[in-house]
């Protein structure tokens, strides 16, 4: 299984990671090797095998609807890159 430069560039946009041409070349080789390794999977006979998402066959526990959290904005925003008037700041989003 090979992965093309175009695929890598597309995936990098989806993952929001900037890559330059040189990195794309390196990734083409590395990701190609990883996907070759992964392609061993196609040999497995998985006819009528249910996918396994969790190692333990457990079911979800549900929490009672009770407020347990208090305002800790000051502590959380002390470690934020940019805030103003209690808001987190990000570059303007145009919709």
């Amino acid at each position: 299984m090979t992965i093309s430069r175009k695929d890598i560039e597309k995936v990098a946009v989806l993952a929001r990671i900037q890559v330059d041409d040189e990195q794309v070349s390196a990734l083409e080789k590395d990701l190609g090797n990883i996907l070759d390794l992964v392609d061993q999977l196609s040999a497995a006979d998985t006819e009528s095998v249910e996918p396994l998402a969790h190692p333990l066959d457990a079911v979800q526990r549900l929490r009672p609807d009770e407020v347990t959290e208090t305002d800790q904005r000051a502590a959380f925003q002390a470690i934020a890159p940019a805030t103003e008037n209690g808001l987190y700041l990000a570059p303007r989003v145009i919709e």
């Binding site: 940019a82 808001l87 987190y88 700041l89 990000a90 570059p91």
Partner: peptide, 11 residues
């Protein structure tokens, strides 16, 4: 922001 760029505030 300090550079005068328009910012989005997130609540």
């Amino acid at each position: 922001d300090s550079m005068g760029h328009g910012m989005t505030g997130v609540d």
